[in-house]
Amino acid sequence: MLTIYNFISAFVIAIFSFNIFKIIYNYRKNKKSFVIDILQVLALLLMLGFIVYYWLSIEREPLRTLWETRLWYAFFTASIAYLFKLHWKMDYMLIYGNIITIIFILVNLLHPETFSKELMPALQSYWFVPHVIVYIFSYAMFGIVTMMALFNEIKKIKFKTSIQDLDDMVKIGLGFLTLGLVFGALWAKKAWGNYWTWDPKEVWALITWIIYLLYIHYRFGFISEEKYVNKILIISFVLLLVCWFGVNYLPVANQSVHTYTN
């Protein structure tokens, strides 16, 4: 399994890196090329193919461990970036998405999975897949948004995104984040008898939700002012990462029931 993953990863990283450079090259020469699309779709199909193969061989929903969430995250980020590229007709969307995807594939290569087929009873629920998938999808949206905000902040980089586009992506991300939070609550009621227990992971999920809620309200309250937009988005994503990976390392970790990710 790991050998197949390593092989596919190497191929996908090569394609995505090539696409990033090709887009920059095209931009400088003022060209367009179709090869980017073909390669991007090919890489996405390879990733999807691996996920399907992995799902079939692990004999449970492949969404339990952090390694598996990163596997999906890499796929979603690259896919979303490609969809927005098509929708907005902006090649440079792929730069953001592909950079994040490459980072996440590299992290996964550095932390190999142990491929346990076990799935504890609490996770055997029809809420499992929708809950995690909508969360990873929204995290992927926010990942791309954060890359855009970072590029906006760095003076040397010429690719800049308009704030309106950032707002739109945050709204879509927040929609999915809300669904993830709410599905989690409905599931928790079924599994543990309480829809909300202020478990550390829940507290951090709420923190993430509220910071993006704050962003939307800030934009509503100061439509013409854009001073803090990029900074808020970058801080928000840091909090999101604490929720996703960091909670396990905080002093509150041993109070959490979300320990099956370890």
Binding site: M90, F159, K160, Q164, D165, K171, F176, T178, V182, Y195
Partner: peptide, 30 residues
Amino acid sequence: VIYFGIYMMVIGAVLLMFTVNKGGKNVNNL
């Protein structure tokens, strides 16, 4: 009652995603 509120939030979250503008038009330098 709480479930009623939760279902309203679900509908609200979906509606929120459709309030976005067309986008992709106001890009600088590219």
